[in-house]
Design a protein around this nucleic acid. Structure first.
Ligand SMILES: [Zn+2]
Ligand SMILES: [Zn+2]
Ligand SMILES: [Zn+2]
Ligand SMILES: [Zn+2]
Lengths: 127, 127
DNA sequence: CCGCACAATGACAAGGATTCTCAATAACGG
DNA sequence: CCGTTATTGAGAATCCTTGTCATTGTGCGG
């Protein structure tokens, strides 16, 4: 089972790399269209799912909205997210918090955590 | 516009109140069926959406899965969540973390936050 | 270079979750 | 009780995501 390199996959990676923030499948699709006008939505879904399964990208959930995705090398630099309730965009924020183990009930095993701040982003606050 | 009290809505509230953890619409529906066997799935979606809009319940997002909901009075007692990657259930955990403002870029305004721990729950870990 | 094998694609069908529509029901004030 | 009308339940409709499959084109061997 070889793995072939295509312009579609390359485009999707570039979009995610240059975005600087987690993007939805639809957002990736729209952005990828400019560099590969014939790309299909199926391909974007397929590629993103595979990348996620392979751990190359990570999923970010926001209530009531489709998941967003970002490159794992960004995710590898441990960070968290900020959801602007005005424009619905999601931003990366650096830093973390400690002492999470102490929050767990006995018997539970901690493997990871996801912290999402919410409020108004710089752009929306300015207006 | 009066608001009428129905057994369906009462049942849904009871289910959420007695669950002790955030539940998906389907879970609420299944549970509500035992007390109101004729209840429709539409009614559960409708009621949960209205309760969420009115701020009586809060939504909890998990990547790749439908939102879960919990009563706001539970949510009001500030707490967070634990997602078991084995059984996919979501649990409430008490406690919080501080110093979140310091994580924000300049110009951003913090209104709230959501922290979701993940790992293996007590039940699954036992097996 | 050329051609083959088969991974990947794109268009569309299919599936699942959520919302919408509407006639029938039932809560509640009179 | 009665009438008004908020609410319900069933199904259609919509949105998001995955599956299917004939076609395309990558990567390798000749
Ligand atoms: Zn914004
Ligand atoms: Zn962290
Ligand atoms: Zn579990
Ligand atoms: Zn907190």
């Amino acid at each position: 089972m070889e793995t072939r390199r295509t312009k579609q996959q390359q485009s999707i990676r570039e979009v995610l790399a240059e975005a600087g923030r987690p993007m939805s499948v639809q957002e990736v699709f729209d952005a990828a269209l400019t560099s590969v006008p014939t790309i299909g939505l199926s391909t974007v879904y397929r590629t993103i799912r595979r990348l996620a399964e392979q751990g190359e990208i990570a999923a970010v959930a926001v209530p009531g909205q489709p998941d967003r995705y970002e490159l794992a090398d960004v995710a590898a630099t441990h960070h968290h997210h900020f959801h602007c309730t005005e424009c619905d965009r999601v931003f990366d924020v650096r830093g973390c918090v400690g002492g999470l183990d102490r929050m767990l009930p006995p018997g539970f095993k901690l493997r990871g955590h996801e912290l999402t701040l919410s409020g108004v982003c710089g752009g929306c606050a300015a207006r």
